[in-house]
């Protein structure tokens, strides 16, 4: 396996994905414990995402590695006008591996091209967040014992939501049947639908009011928050922000094995009384971020024998 960086889910094939999930599973089950002692991870967060940063730092520390962190980027080099390329070149001389989150799309790719050290993308604007997609896949496999031929509904903001775009792409490796539930103004972009068609993946677009009809078939219901900050027009946001809410009532027809996932934080998409149903899986899901990131750090640092 010759992965140098993790920048985009589009760089990975099915074999890569399964390799990463298998390593994560072995780490979680304590069947292997890669030793990252003496290795230094640099986390560069050009926009705050405390949770993602903690998750990477925890993963590194639990495997014996060290962490250096650019906590307040506004007072550092970027604020002095240094280019991203130069910053990464310098940090690459200190650290063994770099995790970057940046508000501009394509920044992680540029960072990876600026250093020989491995780079992991922890979110580049609205583009990619590949470790989220990998942990989503891990959660799906963990809850269903397979990734093959599942019936998966993605709902919420399918237009701007990078999580659902990447997940739809990744699920196409496993011949899953996809259902896209969204308000009319937030449907999946055409290029994604075209791509799925070319791969002969079965999918169906549904209006929110028709989504009840498929509830009895689903294995996975993946809900996302409608993100205010992605909307060019706030009036548009107001119209759709509460369009889809998952309640226990909606889950009446659900199959026993149905699991609900959500990248968190949730706002109102899932009512809190769903949390105590057997379908809720989002808090387990977020925990899988640790083994997935442990696996990625170990693989990229070449510590998997």
């Amino acid at each position: 396996m010759k992965l140098k960086d993790i920048i985009s889910i589009n760089d990975l094939n099915k074999k890569d994905v399964l390799f990463i999930l298998d390593i994560a599973e072995k780490i979680e089950a304590k069947r292997i414990k890669p030793n990252l002692g003496g290795q230094v991870l640099a986390t560069l967060f050009y926009e705050p995402s405390t949770r993602t940063r903690f998750s990477f730092e925890t993963a590194m520390k639990r495997l014996g590695g060290e962490v250096i962190s650019m906590a307040d980027i506004k007072s550092t080099s970027a604020a002095k006008g240094e280019s991203l390329r130069d910053t990464i070149k310098v940090i690459g001389k200190y650290a063994d591996i770099i995790v970057i989150r940046h508000p501009l799309e394509g920044s992680a790719r540029l960072a990876a091209e600026s250093t020989d050290k491995p780079v992991i993308n922890a979110g580049d604007g609205a583009n990619q967040h590949p470790t989220q997609t990998l942990l989503d896949l891990y959660a799906i496999r963990n809850s269903q014992n397979t990734l093959d031929k599942l019936k998966v509904a993605l709902c919420g903001d399918l237009k701007y939501g990078r999580t659902v775009h990447s997940l739809a792409y990744a699920l196409s490796f496993f011949d899953c049947e996809l259902f896209f539930i969204s308000p009319q103004s937030l449907t999946m972009p055409k290029y994604i639908l075209e791509d799925l068609k070319n791969k002969k993946i079965k999918f169906q677009e549904l209006k929110i009011e028709d989504s009840n009809n498929i509830m009895g078939k689903l294995d996975i219901l993946y809900a996302t928050r409608i993100q205010k900050e992605r909307f060019p027009d706030l009036a548009e946001y107001e119209k759709v922000k509460d369009a889809y809410v998952i309640t226990p009532k909606l889950l009446k027809k659900a199959k026993r094995n149905l699991r609900i996932l959500h990248p968190l934080p949730r706002v109102k998409e899932i009512t809190t009384d769903v949390d105590s149903t057997p379908y809720a899986f989002y808090f387990e899901q977020v925990g899988f971020g640790i083994p997935i990131r442990q696996a990625l750090l170990s693989i990229l640092l070449d510590k998997i024998k």
């Binding site: 280019s83 991203l84 390329r85 940046h102 508000p103 501009l104 799309e105 394509g106 920044s107 790719r109 540029l110 580049d124 604007g125 609205a126």
Partner: peptide, 11 residues
């Protein structure tokens, strides 16, 4: 894409 890194850095 106005939010692309190539629009902000000399790339």
């Amino acid at each position: 894409n106005p939010n692309c890194i190539t629009r902000h850095e000399d790339v």
